[in-house]
Amino acid sequence: MRDNEHWDLVIKPKSNWLDINFADLWRYRDLILLFVRRDFVAQYKQTILGPVWHIIQPLFTTFLYAVVFGEIANLKTDGSPRPLFYLSGIIMWNFFSGCLLNTANTFIANAGIFGKIYFPRLVIPISTVISNSIRFGIQFFLLIDFLLFYIFVRDIHISITYYVLYVPILIIIMGVMGLGFGIMISSLTTKYRDIALFLGFALQLLMYLTPVIYPASLWGKYQWVMDINPMTPIIESFRHAMLGSGHFDMTGIIYSGIFSIVVFLIGAILFTRTEKTFMDTV
């Protein structure tokens, strides 16, 4: 007998490689926004400074780096004022590592909710990335304030070029890459918790392999390390667009873009495979 009836929902074993139900995600858009709100509100409840922490944290790190890597280690900054150089690197890196770290525990941290109710699991990582984008937005304005201070008060010449128009693209690539790695790791950690323990260490290592606290030109004959790191062209180009230092690397950006899409697709495949049965292994 043929079944010609219309069914709103068919529950079946995991099958497709990449099975993202966009209509479903759209239906839960309110939930995404509520999660974003929850993240913001809950994070700074019972703090005095509240969201000001979003600004304090990069400021403090910038100060720390300027002292340790600037004054003491005396690493060059390609001619940019140190605070600008470090701040621009830090907010980009924070955005990436925030997207990655906060999505990497999606399954473990939400096992309680996931075990009781269905909603598209991607809602959580997506809302995390939105939260991080908002935080990045706040920090970006901090960077602009710094820029204006240096241009108008300190009278330092900073050449801002039309490359600024590429900044949104750079940010999107960074976000997609963080999300891709994050959901990939979140899927793997449901089986092997070791990865979560290793993650903080790995990210720190990766930061030192990325031109966050030094310019890409520092590596000299080990330049290839910089070249294969997909984060390099993003941060370098971001600095070039905002501060005029370093160089703008179009090929590098394309490489990073493709890299981020591949990472995201692998992440999404793992994620959709995991979300259906992870409750059995968690």
Binding site: W7, I11, K12, G115, K276, M279, D280
Partner: peptide, 18 residues
Amino acid sequence: KILSRVTAPTSGNIKVKG
């Protein structure tokens, strides 16, 4: 759990209206 889509079945399927 299968009906509420918390976990997927190993085989078979469920069709739902509404």
